[in-house]
Amino acid sequence: MDTIKNSKVFSLLIITMIYIMAAALGLYVYIRLPFSFWADLLIADVVATVFVFIFSVILGNASVYDPYWSVQPVVIIAGYAFTCRLTSATLLLLISVIYWGIRLTANWAYGFGGLNHQDWRYTKLKEDTGKLYPFINFAGIHMFPTLVVYGCILPAVFTAVSEVRANAGSIAGTVICIGAATLQLFADGQMHKFRKSGSKSLIRTGLWKYARHPNYLGEILMWWGIGIQAVSVMPGRWWLLAGALANTIMFFTVSIPMADKRQSAKPGYDEYRAGTRSLLPIPR
């Protein structure tokens, strides 16, 4: 098993099989449920997450869940786009989510080191929480992100089901989404290049010269772009922006503080933080 876990190819095959089975299980549950589409989707999403969680425990690696963040929205919006009447508004959402999802999944696969490699944040949580880690693993690492991303993709689902046409707001939201994913593309590319150099210092080149977390900015903007697309064609459903808001709060209260704390041990961090914005990649 250790040999397989150390192999990136075999590890990717195992995770791919897990996700295919999780998607099939989620679809089966969704079809069998008698409630409204959004409730059925929520339950199916939770069941699929539990399935992935079980395998993450079996394999002893919470990073089995990592691709869920980018795979789940693509599967969901594609499913609704092709089972409902495909309108211009849905098409723009489909393009936005697929572009974002392919880029983010490819970035995860590029940096994936095999099933013996676990995200440093999960390892840190395990060290800090001790006996509470199994609960933290299920509720915090798996279920909470699933619910956040469910809230983020829900505006796209309502748009697809409503079969409405695109307007100027749809185009503006699409531009935000494509721009956000492209920002992440450049930021992650610069980070990969920096890590390849072998430097253990702080990255202070490219977008990272002006922002400590330009990749997080892209992720935040992405879901506001999706929300804008939906609300622009369904203004009465402004509450659909709750998902984007929850995602933003998660980054400000969890992701950014954890990343900053990890970087704070590096020499020159205080100076870097004082002169570099957290998110906006513009000079001070």
Rank of each mutant, 00 (worst) to 15 (best):
K5W: 00
S7G: 06
F10V: 12
Y28T: 07
I31P: 02
R32N: 03
W38T: 04
L41Q: 10
L42V: 04
D45S: 10
A48F: 10
T49Q: 07
T49N: 15
T49Y: 05
T49L: 13
V52K: 05
I54K: 06
L59G: 04
S63N: 02
P67M: 03
Y68L: 14
S70L: 04
S70W: 02
V75Y: 02
A78I: 09
L94C: 07
S96N: 11
I98W: 13
I98F: 15
T105H: 14
N107H: 01
W120Q: 05
R121W: 05
K124V: 10
D128P: 02
D128K: 10
G130L: 13
L132T: 13
Y133M: 05
I136G: 10
F138R: 02
T146H: 02
G151T: 11
F158P: 01
F158L: 09
F158H: 09
A160M: 09
S162Y: 14
E163W: 09
V164K: 00
R165Y: 13
N167V: 00
N167G: 04
A168V: 06
A168T: 15
G169W: 06
I171W: 07
A172S: 15
A172E: 09
I176W: 04
I178R: 05
L183T: 03
A187L: 12
A187K: 08
M191C: 12
H192M: 15
H192C: 14
S197Q: 10
S199I: 15
S201N: 03
S201D: 14
L202D: 07
T205D: 11
G206C: 01
Y216L: 03
Y216K: 04
Y216I: 08
L221F: 14
W224S: 01
M234P: 03
W238K: 10
W239R: 01
L240D: 06
L241P: 02
A246S: 14
A246G: 12
T253M: 07
P257D: 13
A259E: 00
D260Y: 10
P267F: 07
R273I: 01
A274T: 05
S278T: 05
I282Y: 08
P283T: 03
